[in-house]
Amino acid sequence: MTDPYEILGVAKNASADDIQKAYRRLAKKHHPDLNPGDKSAEEKFKDVTAAYDLLGDAEKRGRYDRGEIDASGAEKPQRRYYRDFAESGQAGGRGFEQGYADFGDEDILSEIFGRRGANVKMRGGDVRYHLAVDFLSAVNGAKPQLSLPDGSEITVTIPAGTRDGQTLRLKGKGRPGYNGGEPGDALIEIEVRPHPFFTREDDNIRIELPISLAEAVLGGKVKTPTPSGDVLLNIPKGANSGTVLRLKGKGVAKAGGGQGDQYVTLKVMLPEKPDPELEEFIARWSKAKAYDPRRAMEV
């Protein structure tokens, strides 16, 4: 994989905000929904997403910059020994249990506990993972695969409505127990990637929808994206930029049941190229129907 900094087009000292802005810009440009059938755009979108997965995570970015992991996030597992663990001052109680999860050597444990160590049962330690998922996967739910350090994979069920930073627990998927003890759990911290169009506020979704001058003046039904698919939104006559319309029940699944709403902010867009006919019409119209949109500002 190419250097993620090069893929996003940012300097190595770029701020986290600059990295996110670069990702949003490129993700929107190459998003498969905006480039149907374009395999090149689809591959670029995947590369941009993978680059952001690494650089958008402060810990991963630091490890990449220090050369501890490569551009794909691959690394060599670090083996800890009891001497290192004992020197950390954690040799006892719950801390030791977690420490066992790091080195997991039965002969070392037997030595620690003495000749009777073989009779001691101990629960395996919990293992923490980080999993980045798409915005829509978090909103709608998904079942992605998570690759483990030993090369195996586990399926992670992402419940609909999962939030950024939320931790999911997979019971029994952690380190094996010692001497017949139960295994620990896998704790999956979820990172939700930003979406090119949607943003989330609690259980509601917000989106800015461009509309034409004709749609703003005459009104009508306009196809509008939602996390669950496109719907027809009724634009009232005389709509302005900044007008907010609500799509009830098109937001995020609530923990106690029900759905949030989607709020659509309209943005009137003129043609990309100047239109002489439109200019002529507006010039005639404005002379006969002049009005001051800034009257309330007293300027």
Rank of each mutant, 00 (worst) to 15 (best):
G249H: 08
F197N: 09
G151K: 15
P149K: 12
S147Y: 12
E215H: 07
E215I: 01
T226M: 04
P32C: 13
L109C: 07
D164W: 10
P274S: 07
G229P: 05
A11Q: 08
I154W: 07
F113E: 12
D292V: 03
G256P: 04
A118R: 15
V264R: 01
R61D: 10
G256N: 13
H30D: 11
I207E: 01
R295A: 15
G172H: 04
G37K: 04
K21W: 00
M1K: 02
G249D: 09
Q78Y: 07
G67P: 05
K21H: 05
H30L: 02
E87A: 08
D230E: 09
E68C: 09
L136N: 09
G114V: 06
K237H: 14
G117Q: 10
G220M: 09
D18L: 08
G56T: 03
V139G: 01
P4E: 02
F198R: 06
L34I: 04
G251V: 03
G92I: 01
G220A: 08
Y263A: 10
P77Q: 00
K287R: 14
K12D: 10
L233W: 02
A16T: 03
A186S: 09
Y263I: 07
A14S: 10
A16Q: 05
P159A: 09
V139S: 05
G165H: 07
G73T: 06
K248Q: 10
K289D: 12
G256M: 11
G172N: 14
I188F: 08
D126G: 09
S241R: 04
G93M: 14
I112H: 09
S286W: 15
K12G: 04
V192H: 06
H195Y: 03
D202F: 03
H31M: 07
F45Y: 07
A58I: 08
Y129A: 11
Y64P: 01
P36C: 05
P225L: 05
T199V: 12
F113K: 12
A91S: 06
L187I: 10
R94W: 04
R83C: 07
K221S: 14
Y5T: 06
A41E: 01
E42H: 10
T265K: 14
